[in-house]
């Protein structure tokens, strides 16, 4: 038990990434409001970014810019940070597109609740006036 606690304390960024990930998934699955679903998705993505960046970090190492003064010292791995820049760009475009869709639905249905919209759609299909 003590050993496990120690492991968590040493690897705390990963521990927080797991918690964030769980929060994100739970929000997407349990909330019917589409804005909250989108927020949950963003939280979940942040958790993965955190995991990547934590993987690239080395405690006590300097930034990966080599000058005369830090030549030879340990530097952190810049690759995960560069990759996550791409990931953030992707998630921004997903968020923008999702917001546009929410706006279009709100104009027509007057709500941002996914369950209410599904009910309205069912009713329309039943009466055949799409």
């Amino acid at each position: 038990m003590n050993k496990l606690l120690n492991k968590i304390l040493i690897n705390y960024p990963y521990f927080f990434a797991v918690i964030l990930f769980a929060i994100g998934v739970a929000t997407i699955v349990t909330r019917s409001n589409m804005f909250k679903k989108l927020l949950g998705l963003n939280i979940m993505e942040s958790a993965v970014y955190l995991m990547f960046i934590a993987a690239g970090n080395i405690r006590g190492a300097t930034e990966p810019i080599i000058t005369d003064s830090n030549a030879g010292s340990t530097i952190i791995n810049p690759l995960p940070s560069a990759l996550m820049l791409t990931g953030i760009v992707v998630s921004v475009s997903v968020t923008a597109f999702a917001l546009a869709l929410i706006l279009r639905m709100y104009k027509h249905y007057g709500t941002t609740d996914a369950i209410l919209i599904a009910e309205m759609r069912d009713k329309n299909e039943k009466w055949g006036n799409k």
Partner: peptide, 22 residues
């Protein structure tokens, strides 16, 4: 609006999938 709803569901679930892959 029906297409927007279908697309939103697809977008959220599919991005959930990509995040898992990442």
């Amino acid at each position: 609006p029906v297409a927007a709803h279908a697309s939103f569901t697809y977008l959220i679930l599919s991005t959930l999938g990509s995040t898992l892959v990442l």
